[in-house]
Amino acid sequence: MTETTQTGTRPPGPLSALGLAIIAAVVIVDQISKAIAEARLDYQHGIELLPILALYRVHNTGVAFSFAHGFDSLLLVGGTALITLVVLWLWATARDGGRLVAIGFALITGGAIGNLIDRVRFGHVVDFLYLHLGDRGLFVFNLADVALTIGPILLAWHYLVVERKR
């Protein structure tokens, strides 16, 4: 299916096969990768993979980039759940964008659920991928965070680039 055809079609919803498959895949891969990181990586000891990427396990009690570090865990769980419900509502009411928009929403939802599971189980999120430039650390993240980054990029691409061209 071409992008032109997709933009005018309603995206498959959260309960569609596509939506459920992507959400499940993100949550499963995220949780397995975090379990391996917890089992195999010493806390706060790095293993260089690439000149800009290392394995480095930490426990993030905040949200993105450790923002809200030290906030009440229950508040963060409630806030994450509320935002996830808003994303699901936006997805369910989306009128166009086809599969691209559905994939974007599914990545956001799966990533949010993956991190929400950590918050409920542990009171923190397990992060283990450390992006750095030499000695300058940028941030530590996990695979749920990757989905939470790619999802909005896909939505922005559709709503800011594709829709403007129409």
Results as ranks from 00 to 15, higher is better:
1 M>T: 13
3 E>P: 01
8 G>T: 11
12 P>L: 07
13 G>L: 09
13 G>P: 10
14 P>L: 07
14 P>R: 11
15 L>W: 06
16 S>V: 08
17 A>N: 02
19 G>W: 11
20 L>A: 14
23 I>A: 06
23 I>P: 01
24 A>M: 10
25 A>V: 04
27 V>M: 04
27 V>Q: 02
29 V>D: 05
29 V>Q: 04
30 D>K: 05
32 I>N: 12
32 I>Y: 14
32 I>W: 14
34 K>G: 01
35 A>S: 10
35 A>D: 05
36 I>F: 10
37 A>W: 01
40 R>D: 01
41 L>P: 01
42 D>M: 00
43 Y>F: 10
48 E>K: 06
48 E>L: 08
49 L>H: 06
49 L>S: 08
50 L>K: 05
50 L>D: 06
51 P>M: 05
52 I>F: 15
53 L>H: 05
54 A>D: 15
56 Y>I: 00
57 R>G: 02
58 V>K: 09
58 V>F: 01
58 V>P: 00
59 H>E: 07
60 N>E: 03
61 T>H: 13
62 G>Q: 07
62 G>Y: 07
63 V>A: 15
66 S>M: 06
68 A>R: 12
70 G>I: 03
71 F>G: 00
72 D>M: 03
72 D>F: 02
73 S>G: 11
74 L>N: 12
76 L>C: 00
77 V>I: 15
79 G>T: 12
81 A>F: 12
81 A>R: 04
83 I>R: 00
83 I>Y: 00
83 I>G: 06
84 T>Y: 02
86 V>F: 13
86 V>R: 04
87 V>C: 01
88 L>W: 03
88 L>V: 14
91 W>Y: 04
91 W>A: 03
92 A>I: 08
96 D>P: 00
96 D>Q: 12
99 R>T: 09
99 R>Y: 10
100 L>A: 08
100 L>E: 02
100 L>N: 03
101 V>E: 03
102 A>P: 03
103 I>N: 05
104 G>R: 00
105 F>S: 06
105 F>T: 09
109 T>K: 07
112 A>K: 03
113 I>S: 08
113 I>E: 07
113 I>L: 15
114 G>E: 13
115 N>Y: 01
115 N>C: 05
117 I>D: 13
118 D>H: 13
118 D>E: 10
119 R>I: 08
123 G>N: 14
125 V>W: 04
126 V>R: 04
128 F>D: 02
128 F>R: 02
129 L>E: 08
129 L>Y: 05
130 Y>L: 15
131 L>K: 04
131 L>S: 09
133 L>N: 07
134 G>Q: 11
135 D>L: 13
136 R>Q: 12
137 G>C: 06
137 G>R: 11
138 L>K: 04
138 L>A: 09
142 N>A: 09
142 N>T: 08
142 N>R: 12
143 L>A: 12
144 A>I: 05
146 V>T: 14
147 A>I: 09
147 A>K: 11
148 L>P: 03
149 T>E: 14
149 T>L: 15
150 I>V: 15
150 I>H: 11
151 G>N: 12
154 L>H: 00
154 L>T: 06
155 L>W: 09
156 A>I: 14
157 W>L: 15
157 W>C: 10
159 Y>D: 10
159 Y>N: 10
160 L>M: 12
160 L>W: 13
163 E>Q: 06
165 K>N: 14
166 R>Q: 10
